[in-house]
Amino acid sequence: MSKTVGAEGWTVVHQARQKHYDDRYYGQFLGTRKDGRWIVGRMWSGRSMDDGFHDGGWDWSKRFAEPSSTDAADAALKSYVEMSHETFVWNRVFEQRVGEAIDAYWAGPEVPGAPRLSAGWCRTPDGLPGGSTVGLPFHEAKYRLLQYLRSTESTARADLSPRTFNLHDAVELIRQANGPFRFQHGYNAYWLADDAS
């Protein structure tokens, strides 16, 4: 889901709202702007799923503008998960679903005529295979590669390999990609590949 809320122009990357035991609806949203800033907002409580925004506004928000958009997104994600307990929308897969929504936003929309590519990763020091996909529509391959990067970040140990891409640069490389490429992040290699080559 991506839609703009109100005059402030935040693009909503994720939102959650549900009915609580007091018969009122509570919810929250996570949004961003093209300049890399992120926002975590609490919707108004109300009597339906659709009355969380009043005239495009919301109850409360916190904004994140870190030196890198990746750091800002990580800080916003942490705050968003913490808020989910207050708004009664948390469940066991909440953080995973929000991470997926961020990656889908970063992968961008489908590009007509873009190549089909496979996404993959492996550990490079020992050559251990990681994972890979079949050829996918371009935006979906970028999404899968972002998912691989997110799920392997803790074991990549980029802090021990300063000559490789850092997390922010790796995410930006994937976001800006327009064809096949390969890069090293810590102990892992990641790629988008043309299966025909």
Rank of each mutant, 00 (worst) to 15 (best):
W60E: 02
V12E: 10
T133Q: 06
L145C: 00
F183N: 03
V89L: 10
V81E: 10
A104R: 12
R157S: 12
S132P: 08
A7D: 13
R144W: 12
H139T: 02
L136D: 05
C122N: 11
A16V: 05
S79M: 11
Y21V: 13
F138R: 07
F138G: 09
F53T: 08
R150N: 06
V40C: 03
A73K: 01
Q18S: 14
Q28G: 06
Y105W: 15
W60P: 07
A101Q: 05
T124M: 11
N188F: 15
T164A: 11
H54Q: 11
P67Q: 01
P125T: 04
R150H: 08
T155D: 14
V81G: 05
W10M: 02
K78R: 15
T87M: 06
A101G: 04
P125L: 06
E82S: 15
P129C: 05
S154C: 10
A114L: 04
G52L: 04
L117T: 08
H168S: 09
S48A: 03
A75K: 05
T152A: 01
Y148H: 04
A16L: 02
G46C: 00
C122D: 13
F165P: 07
H185W: 10
C122G: 08
P112W: 02
T32R: 15
A16G: 08
W191D: 02
R123H: 14
H85G: 05
W106E: 06
A73H: 03
V93L: 14
A170W: 13
I174L: 01
G113N: 12
V5A: 11
G186T: 02
V40H: 03
G130V: 07
V40Q: 05
P115R: 02
K3D: 11
H185I: 03
W38E: 01
Q18Y: 09
D103K: 07
S197I: 11
M49L: 14
P109L: 08
I174H: 05
E66C: 12
N166E: 11
A170C: 11
A119M: 04
D71I: 04
G135H: 10
D194A: 08
P129E: 12
A141G: 00
G6E: 00
F53R: 10
R144C: 06
R97G: 11
T164H: 04
V40M: 06
E95L: 00
F53W: 14
Y25Q: 00
Q176T: 07
G9K: 02
V171A: 04
S61G: 01
D169W: 10
V81C: 09
Y105A: 06
M49S: 06
S61Q: 04
T11D: 12
L167T: 06
G57C: 11
L173W: 15
H139Q: 03
S197M: 13
W121Y: 15
R123S: 10
G57S: 13
V134W: 13
G9D: 07
D22S: 05
E8P: 01
A170L: 09
Q18G: 15
P112H: 03
E66G: 07
F165S: 12
P125D: 10
G186V: 01
N166H: 10
D59R: 13
H139A: 09
E153Q: 11
Y25N: 00
Y26T: 00
D71W: 12
G99Y: 07
G127F: 00
A156H: 02
H14L: 05
T133Y: 08
F183Y: 03
R144F: 04
N91Y: 13
L192G: 04
F165G: 02
F29I: 02
D169I: 09
T155H: 09
N91E: 14
